[in-house]
Design a protein around this nucleic acid. Sequence first.
DNA 1: CTGGGGAGGGGGCCC
DNA 2: GGGGCCCCCTCCCCA
Length: 578
Amino acid sequence: MELPNHAKQILLQLNQQRAKGFLCDVIIVVENALFRAHKNILAASSIYFKSLVLHDNLINLDTEMVNPSVFRQVLDFIYTGKLLSSLDQSSEQNYSALLTAASYLQLHDLAALCRKKLKRSGGKPLPGKLSTSGPLSRLRHNNERLSSSTLTASHNHYILAPSDADQPDDGLRDKLSDDEMFIGSTAGKNGTCGSGSNGNLSNGLSGRETDLGLDLSKKSPPSAGTTTDALSPHSNSQGSPQSASVSTTNSASLDDSTTTLPSLDTTGPEPMELIPTPKAPEDSQAHPDAPPPRKSSRQVARKKEWPKREASGLKAEDHDPPLVNGVIMGPKEGCSSSGVGGDSRCSFPSDQSFQCKEEEEVGQNGQEHSDQSGHSDGESGGGGHHSANYVYRQEGFEPAFGDNLYVCIPCGKGFPSSEQLNAHVETHTEDELYIKEEVGAFVKEEEAEDLSAPVAPTTFGISEPRPFKCTVCSKSYKDPATLRQHEKSHWLTRPFPCNICGKMFTQRGTMTRHMRSHLGLKPFACDECGMRFTRQYRLTEHMRVHSGEKPYECQLCGGKFTQQRNLISHLRMHTSPS
DNA sequence: CTGGGGAGGGGGCCC
DNA sequence: GGGGCCCCCTCCCCA
């Protein structure tokens, strides 16, 4: 007995799931586009992918070997066994590019198919580099290049490019479907395949900023419950080709729910709902003792709480983000909140929100898009710029061509990109950037609050020498590095921009953490319920939910709390007159 | 409807 | 650079 169409049906299902991001557990970054896919499928298709997905959930492919348009076809092929070429894609050039990519990715069937096509059309099977150097040597070369960093400038993929000038060339964009959204690139107009290795995206950035080699990955703590932790994710395991720059979440499976871009504005028409997709059903089976779900729209609106969603019996696909063929939508040139035209649209409000038009076919229940607050946390009070000393993107900007959206507060000068702004900011001397105490209006609230904090904190009553004193606020620190770190908080500008939303940070670590929230990377998984967190501390807090531990006790009423913040808010209730 | 509690998320900042 | 903690905002649930 054999069902003749079984394999076909399964593949069809998988492809549909990919299109919706359902159960996707790996992100492939190609230049400026993110693709989501299933590790199993990739591994089954190519030894190369097999080696990559073994330990990694975020894979950066060499942009010299494959561009988003080509990879889209490759992925289609993997999932369908068909080469879906449109008119402009069926050219000889396209097959050459496909062949290059197929060779690089070790998709032998696809490579053979391309060769056949090229032969038929009289084209040379493998023009250029691959025929001479071969993919493997190329891979080795890449490996060397990439050994020092995962998302280095030369393969930086999370770059915001609000203006047209920053976008990849039209040729490439034309090849991309309307639904594929660039995260953007500051590589100027060098977004085409083959230009990615020059590290030329600095575009005026200072050296420090150009090297925003973000390893957004995070190793899951042992509690995340996998066995691969001990392995170095890139220990050249199995001698695998490692040309792809891989940012890994390692053992913490980057399940489908994590590979999302951030929040949405609700104002746009059919904003693309980049909610995390629900966890795989297996998870819920694996955690039968998971706490009862809180059924709520918040699950959708806040793009989290997968266990709840799955437990609620929600058909994940019904609410899955409208990923288009697994491509995670990022901002794209010309994005506007108006969402006109057939393109997926997105905008970059002053905070890290995205807003994208939802693809029609996935629109079904696309309803409740994330509430604005969901991702404007910490800024909601200020219309997007709650901190006066942010170098901010102008409120209500439309990413129209030519606008200088990034404004340097000290001098008021506008710049079309965060990078250019940063380059400019570097020209200010540090002295200029300090906020003098008398400029009270610019002291951000955190600092103001800190005034109540002890100036020279002691540890358990024992004074530690703190010889390094801040000249601005008189806080003192044990070492100069910490002092310098602190002093940055007084600067008018913040040296670390988010390449996706342009938000600025005083500390690289904070920015990196912020970037993880863009990408939905949640490496810390709860053993009990499978819920995932961006931070270890959150997981620790969360675990108290399961343990029932309530270490924070109100001295006034004896009430106990799992989280200190809740005790604090509780105490307010005691103290506030209302 | 409202207030309180629980909990998720983000940013700041110190170590 | 990462970890940990603090603070804030927000949402949801429930009494």
